[in-house]
Amino acid sequence: MKGFVAIYRKELSDHFSSYRFLILFALIAMVSLITAYLAGMNMAKALEGRVKPSTVFLSLFTAAGAGFSLVQFVTFFGPLLGLLLGFDAINRERNEGTLSKLLSQPIYRDAVINAKFSAAVTMIALMLAAIILVITGLGMLVLGVVPDAEAMGRLVVYFVISVVYIALWLAVAILLSILMRSVATSALASLALWIFFSFFVSIGANAVANSLTADAPPDDPAAIVKRARIENALSVLSPMVLYTNATATIVDPTRKTTRSVIQVGMMEQLSMARYSGPLPLDQSLLVVLPNIVFLICLTVICFAASYLVFMRQEIRSL
């Protein structure tokens, strides 16, 4: 990979010295610290004088501190991080005339896009890892619980899924920065896509499901289940839903399915098995595997698309 290392290094140092990244990092670090701290304090108070179950540690990530939990925060704002790191990756260089200079050096063309993608993924991973580590430390201080191997394993899986999820939006942003000449347009377009897939797809799925089951009486259990099924199937189009279901199951060992409560079988609901006893990590992994695979596929497809377009693009065109 001629040129990869040079470009990768330059991209990393650009990210580290950019205000965009510093502001974002400060913001995310602050929010997650406060959230985890509040959640930890609440839990410490609630559990005072009691033996703390080992799963309590993970609740730091899922319990709402200041109105939302850390997991929810990453779900909403993680994509923004990806978009911010990628929306001007190629078109800025094209506009400033540095892209053709770069490409007239003896490097492979794909080194440019590979290095830019990898550098941004590195930033994402560093940021997430830092947050998770800091919160882990904070949790040990506030709660006095040391995470066991199981909890650590869950956090690692959570970390990997989150990096893939944010990298998906990074790949989308890079694709748009290749397709669109203007930086402002690619920024807006990537925001629009994010809003569409994160919010409107689930709203749309809901509307479609409702209209398909409209003629059934509202309290017909079969119709309710059918509606939930349709909604669930359509929501797969939304990376946010895929990610939410996957991470909720990973960080919460008592969850045993990525499906909604309504869709779980009658017997299972009755026995309340869903809420008794935690699931071992490997079982949880098995449950979320389809979601993870789907997320990885989406990311790979987006990156491959940018790769193909970039490799074939006329240097003076657009």
Binding site: I7, R9, E96, G97, T98, L99, S100, K101, Q105, P106
Partner: peptide
């Protein structure tokens, strides 16, 4: 060696750093 007609530069690099980057890209 190609000198473009409207050449662009990385604004935040110094002259020396720009040259060092080109040198690195050329191995």
């Amino acid at each position: 060696g190609y000198l473009q007609e409207n050449m662009g530069f990385y604004r935040d690099l110094t002259g020396r750093q720009s040259l060092a980057y080109i040198a690195e890209l050329n191995g």
